[in-house]
């Protein structure tokens, strides 16, 4: 019964994967196998994009954790309209990327965006800011948009883990005289450690390899400052028509994610071994 699913996936995933591996060894305009495309990875075109992707991945995940973890702890308490709040926090997951981009482009609009309007009105800003066009701001703005889209995932993982925290542990710590802060420090946060790490790596890998959002927000601009690996791969493939280089970039994205995931599993296994 598993066979149809696996056959379909093998056909659609493994065959293309093989194609990519072969393509990565063929340099544009030359015959036969070579490592030319891999050598290109040390070029000044590739390295900044790799760095940008890392910054987008790590930066957005930090933001997500800073916002999602307190929200999850807050919503784990009994409170009014809890279900509604949870639904609203996880809503961005169901919003199509095009609408996410539309929303952030409008919020950050240099002439009519709400942040500029308020900033100018209360005198915080002297000149309007082009959130997605200003070289100093663009990468940060792109990170914020990614964090918004990725927040539901981190929230749900952390929230689910909180719900599995036995009530007795909290009760026990109360009996031992621990206040809210100590409960947080010694019971809740240690319990959440693994799920936060899991959420961070999953969401980080996702944002690291996400193409749509950057493409729709900035297209990699201004002057390539928000150009991450997926955007670079797209440009190599469809603008420069260099399949070999695009394939090598694809491999880099894939193996970066694999490395991050493996590191996570090693850490989790070691953590589990320590506890038993």
């Amino acid at each position: 019964m598993v066979v149809p699913a696996i056959l379909l996936l093998l056909m659609l995933l493994v065959a293309p994967f093989g194609y990519i591996i072969v393509a990565s060894f063929i340099e544009k305009g030359s015959q036969g196998f070579s490592f030319g495309n891999y050598a290109w990875l040390s070029s000044p075109l590739f390295l900044p994009s790799f760095r940008n992707s890392l910054i987008i991945g790590v930066g957005s995940v930090l933001l997500e954790i800073i916002i999602a973890v307190p929200l999850a702890i807050l919503l784990n308490q009994k409170m009014y309209l809890r279900g509604l709040w949870r639904a609203l926090i996880t809503l961005p997951w169901a919003v199509p990327t095009i609408a996410v981009a539309g929303a952030f482009l409008w919020l950050g609009n240099p002439h009519y965006g709400i942040f500029n309007q308020i900033g100018l009105e209360i005198g915080l800003l002297k000149t309007p800011l082009a959130f997605f066009g200003d070289p100093d701001l663009a990468l940060l703005s792109v990170i914020v948009a990614h964090a918004w889209k990725g927040l539901p995932l981190v929230f749900i993982i952390v929230f689910a883990s909180l719900q599995s925290l036995p009530e007795e542990q909290i009760e026990a710590s109360k009996i031992d005289g621990a206040g809210k802060l100590r409960q947080l420090q010694y019971v809740i946060l240690p319990h959440l450690k693994t799920s936060i790490a899991l959420a961070a790596v999953l969401s980080g890998a996702y944002n690291f390899s996400l193409f749509d959002l950057t493409f729709l927000l900035t297209g990699g601009g201004p002057a390539g400052l928000t150009m991450g690996l997926p955007m670079l791969e797209y440009n190599q493939m469809f603008r420069s028509l260099n399949i070999g280089r695009a394939a090598v970039i694809g491999m880099t994205i894939f193996f970066s994610c694999i490395v991050a995931l493996s590191a996570l599993f090693v850490l989790m296994a070691r953590d589990r071994a320590k506890r038993t």
Binding site: L12, L13, A15, P16, F17, Y19, I20, A23, A205, S209, F211, P230, E233, Y234, M237, I243, A246, A247, G250, M251, I253, F254, C257, I258, L261
Partner: peptide
Amino acid sequence: AIPSIMLAIPVFVL
């Protein structure tokens, strides 16, 4: 775990 953007190339060519 395979990123879409990586699959995009061979799929497009095919």
